[in-house]
């Protein structure tokens, strides 16, 4: 995330903190305390986890789905919504 403004002068600062990057630079996966694990054998590829994920951390693959641990905050909505019980949560270890 951009933190500097290339100026040491107060008057040249914008009125409010503006960062010309998108939230893609914010790797929210660092916040996670529970890690979702996808058992692709049980997965029926219905896509509910992908639809419900508030962080777009479920990524459609050619024949299945994968989880982006860079952005997944571990909220567990995917595990709750999965009709096949193919996603389960384990404690995150760092």
């Amino acid at each position: 995330m951009k933190k500097g403004y290339g100026t040491k002068n107060l008057d040249e600062l914008p009125l409010t903190a503006i960062s010309f990057m998108t939230t893609e630079t914010n790797q929210t996966g660092e916040w996670r305390s529970q890690r979702p694990i996808l058992d692709s054998e049980k997965c029926n590829r219905c896509g509910l986890c992908w639809m419900y994920c508030p962080d777009q951390a479920i990524r459609p693959q050619e024949n299945s789905f994968s989880i982006s641990y860079e952005y997944c905050k571990g909220c567990g909505i995917c595990a709750t919504e999965c009709p096949k019980g193919a996603i389960f949560l384990v404690a995150e270890e760092r």
Binding site: M1, K2, K3, T16, I18, S19, F20, M21, T22
Partner: peptide, 8 residues
């Protein structure tokens, strides 16, 4: 695109 009020 930009973020307003971002961390600084």
């Amino acid at each position: 695109p930009s973020m307003f009020g971002s961390t600084t």
